[in-house]
Each structure stands twice: as structure tokens, then as C-alpha cells.
């Protein structure tokens, strides 16, 4: 009979086939192990650290935003980071946003509003390429979801710059990176020690900035992460209780069949 053992076998088979999907597809070149970091947002009870997000936002604003857009984030979303309405209005107003056409049919620039999305640094992809030696700096909104092992990979990428090992020649205008697929990346090392001055006084080491901006990008990729996990804990607890009650009912109703 296909009893508990059979059930386990099939369950294991199903898990194995599921597990396949979580295996990141390796890009060309030798596979590099991405070291795992401790993230506050990992695990089923994970939450974002507001201080970390605000520092990460500062790194994005002062370092990344020169080349990388953040198309899916509006200023109003910054409320998630712990900014209040006035602060958000002030941040938005630092940016110039194109609006229009006005009554004369002209496009015009105005200060940003909380409802606006972050303006992109370049007018279009071609302009972005022209300013970056032919390489296109990708939009960062979904970067953590769009790479296998996203958060660990981004942190590794930003801290993985260094001299190429002997025997490896790096092409003109490219940098060596231990974790980038193929190891040659058009983006020069983005983070310098003390490249930003943190408002909360945290020492702006390369490691600290990489960690902070990765957390910020994890939030940007999935602003609903905390709500999702919180809801999930409640939903699973409810379902466990309901399933327990259903099992008791099943036992009671079936008692006379056996």
C-alpha cells in the first residue's frame, strides 16, 4: 500500500523538483560563491531597519542616482523609510520635474511633489549609454528581485572590486569585479570610504554603505515586504488552527466507519 512512506517519497520528490527552481542559473564563466550576509529583512519575521533604509537612501541619492534611475519609486513611498510628510515634501522639492503642457502648450519644470516618481538621470537609454562609455546603467527599482540571490549579490558586487588576478586582462574602461558574471564590469567601483557623510553619524565605510544601500534597494524592490510577512504569520497561524479543527472533525465523523 501507498502509506505514509509513499507519501513521504512523493513529498520529497516534489520538494526536490521545487528545489531545482531556487538554484540560480549560473552565467557564463566560472561560478563564484556569493557569501551570505545577515539581513534584517530575511526570514519569516524579517523587518526593515529604518535607520539602515534612510542611510541607504542617502547613498542612493548621493552616489547611485548620478547614473541609475529608480523608476518605480515615488517620493510618497519614502514614508516607509520613516520620513514624515514635511520631510517628504522637502525631499521632493529638491528635484526638478518636467510637467506640462501648460496653457501655452509648453512643457515646463517645477519642483517635485510627493506624488512624483524619482526623475531619471538621463532622458533616454541612448543618452545614458552616451554618458557611460556605451554601457547602460540599469534601473535599480527591481534590482534585488532581478538577480539570483539578489541582496547578497548586490552587496558582494559593490564590495567585490579589486585588482585583476595575474593573467587576467581587463578591457579599456572596464573594472575587475570578483562577483560580476565574467568579472569585467563597466561600472567603476561605485562606493568610496567616506563618500557620503551620514546624517546619523554612522562611519561611512565601504562595507557600511554597501550594506545600507542594498537594504534600501531590497525595500525598493518590494516595499510591501513587511506587510507580506506580517500577514503571512497571521494567515499561517489561522490556517494551522483551522486545519487542526478540521482534522478533529474528520476523526469524529469517520469514527463510525472504522
Amino acid at each position: 500500500m501507498m502509506g505514509a512512506r509513499g507519501l513521504l517519497t512523493v513529498a520529497a520528490a516534489a520538494l526536490v523538483s521545487l528545489g531545482l527552481m531556487t538554484t540560480p542559473v549560473k552565467a557564463a564563466g566560472p561560478a563564484v560563491e556569493i557569501p551570505s550576509q545577515n539581513w534584517s529583512f530575511a526570514g519569516i519575521f524579517g523587518t526593515f531597519d529604518r535607520g539602515e533604509l534612510q542611510r541607504g537612501f542617502q547613498v542612493y541619492k548621493e552616489v547611485c542616482a548620478g547614473c541609475h534611475s529608480l523608476d518605480y519609486i515615488a517620493f510618497r513611498n519614502l514614508a516607509d523609510l520613516g520620513f514624515n510628510e514635511l520631510e517628504i515634501k522637502a525631499i521632493a522639492a529638491e528635484y526638478e520635474v518636467q510637467d506640462g503642457p501648460n496653457d501655452e502648450g509648453e512643457m515646463f519644470a517645477r519642483p517635485g511633489l510627493p506624488a512624483d516618481r524619482f526623475p531619471a538621470p538621463f532622458a533616454n537609454d541612448n543618452a545614458a549609454r552616451a554618458s557611460n562609455g556605451g554601457a547602460l546603467p540599469p534601473d535599480l527599482s527591481l534590482m534585488v528581485d532581478a538577480r539570483p540571490n539578489g541582496a547578497n549579490y548586490l552587496y558582494a558586487l559593490m564590495t567585490g572590486y579589486g585588482d585583476a588576478p595575474s593573467g587576467v586582462t581587463v578591457a579599456e574602461g572596464m573594472s575587475y569585479n570578483a562577483y560580476f558574471p565574467g568579472h569585467q564590469i563597466a561600472m567603476p567601483a561605485p562606493i568610496a570610504a567616506d563618500g557620503v557623510e551620514y546624517a546619523d553619524g554612522t562611519a561611512a565605510t565601504v562595507d557600511q554603505q554597501a550594506r545600507d544601500v542594498t537594504a534600501f534597494l531590497a525595500w525598493a524592490a518590494e516595499p510591501n515586504l513587511e506587510e507580506r510577512k506580517r500577514t503571512g504569520v497571521m494567515a499561517v497561524l489561522f490556517l494551522l488552527v483551522m486545519t487542526g479543527l478540521l482534522y478533529a472533525s474528520k476523526r469524529k465523523i469517520w469514527a463510525d466507519v472504522h
Binding site: L18, T22, P24, L142, A146, G150, A221
Partner: peptide, 9 residues
């Protein structure tokens, strides 16, 4: 977990 990261590009 069952999706592919490339589909977020």
C-alpha cells in the same frame, strides 16, 4: 522562489 529573477527585467 519558483519564479525566475530574469522575469523582473
Amino acid at each position: 522562489a519558483m519564479g525566475h529573477p530574469d522575469n523582473y527585467i
